[in-house]
């Protein structure tokens, strides 16, 4: 007999076989000795197992067993609370997360709108033609005359130029002549 037929006999005895198959297997059990023997064996095992399992009893006392279960329930509750906390955290973090990009954007926008103020256009409107008007101090006078001299080569507003810086650097380099060093550098003991 095929293994498939044996398994079908088992399914028939367990009531798991489709009605059409059940008729066939029932006929097989009645007509075939081997099939009948297999069916009898399976029935015997089923009958034996109906006597049930070995009865087991916990040795722990009621109070001890419950105390352990209770402790785990309490621990589970506190874990649930802990788990619920981080779920709030992203909500709190959200505004903070936007501060940096928004702040950066704002800074860029402020810089763009105030560019003229920070890097004034070297024109006659800013520097009056009459340099004598600014003759209150020597610095203003020299700056005014320097700007007048350099004005044609200055780039348009909106384009960064290091020319002015370079000019200052050049001045600094020029001032590295030991003879023009400030007294404090020339003689650090002072």
């Amino acid at each position: 007999m095929k293994k498939g037929d044996r398994i079908k006999i088992q399914a028939f005895l367990d009531g798991e076989l489709a009605p059409q198959e059940s008729v066939k297997i029932s006929y097989l059990i009645d007509s075939d000795l081997e099939a009948r023997t297999v069916a009898d064996e399976l029935k015997s095992v089923q009958k034996l197992l109906k006597y049930g399992e070995n009865e087991l009893k916990l040795e722990d006392s009621r109070d001890f067993y419950w105390s352990q279960v209770h402790r785990q329930i309490e621990a589970g509750n506190s874990n649930l609370l802990e788990q619920s906390r981080p779920s709030n955290a992203p909500r709190m973090e959200n505004p903070l997360r936007w501060i940096l990009p928004i702040g950066s954007m704002a800074a860029i926008v402020v810089l763009m709108f105030n560019f003229n103020t920070i890097n004034p256009k070297p024109s006659n409107e800013v520097l009056p033609e009459d340099s004598t008007a600014n003759a209150a101090s020597g610095l203003t006078e020299s700056l005014g005359s320097a700007m007048e001299e350099e004005a044609p080569s200055m780039p348009e507003v909106g384009v960064f130029s290091f020319e002015g810086i370079w000019k200052n650097d050049r001045n600094l380099l020029e001032s590295e002549d030991p003879s023009v060093l400030p007294e404090s550098i020339e003689n650090p003991e002072r």
């Binding site: 034996l48 006597y51 070995n54």
Partner: peptide
């Protein structure tokens, strides 16, 4: 499965229920 002869299983005749449960 091929080697196992099909036999009548009935060890309950000479056993107490608790004994049988232990054997199962």
């Amino acid at each position: 499965e091929r080697k196992l002869p099909v036999e009548d299983v009935n060890p309950t005749e000479t056993m107490e229920l608790s004994e049988l449960r232990q054997e199962i």
